[in-house]
Amino acid sequence: MGAGHAHRLYRHGHSPVHALPPHTKLAAAFAFVVVVVSTPREAMWAFALYAVLLAVVARQARVPAGVLLKRLLIEIPFVAFAVLMPFVAEGERVDVLGLSLSVNGLWGAWNVLAKGTLGVAASVLLASTTELRELLLGLQRLKLPPLLVQIASFMIRYGDVITDEMRRMRIARESRGFEASGVRHWGVLAKSAGALFIRSYERGERVHLAMVSRGYAGSMPVIDEVTASRAQWSYALALPFAALAVCLLGWTL
């Protein structure tokens, strides 16, 4: 909090990637991920080329490699699963450093790891160059069901309010000598969670009342319209199209 309205994932900047309208970036990132996922896993060189493409985007967006790599760490829990695959998968086995590994499992692990990493990297780039607010406008422009956009937007608006409420409840508990230290205290925590839920639910009703009072009748009015020129679209879509070329080569070679 505190620092203006930027989310902590967002890196303020004035690069050409930052300047792109949000819906073009969303479309480009999504198309890129779809192309990557549809690439045959045996075409290892193709994934290297995808990584190069993302590196070019990162350079254009002036997102330092260090930042990008650090944010990729979010992937680790999923990677752990991929690492298990060579050990547990069925089929033909090979010996690597004295360990018996499944060939299928190795390919599976590589598949998850490569595609996952590229997907996460694309999302990290998107999040670093696009403000949350803009992402919502982009989703709205891309005709995502309005209800989903509204839910996401309320989540962003009230996330901090509810976290703050949670913090006040914790302080109130601790001020009365309660310190959650073991299973025996879970009951109290569960009751706090229940109380928080009810409070949030009631707040929801009050917010709805305030919305209705200002003429809300089921759909959010469009206040900011985002538009993109043909040039902006082609600049944004350069990434998925380059990736598509690589993908097609991967299938034919």
């Binding site: 949350l132 607010r133 937007s153 962003i156 608006r157 009230y158 707040r203 009050r206 009342l209 305030a210």
Partner: peptide
């Protein structure tokens, strides 16, 4: 309304 957090619901 009394609580501005209820009244101000947009980003």
């Amino acid at each position: 309304f009394q609580d501005p957090d209820d009244q101000l619901f947009m980003p």
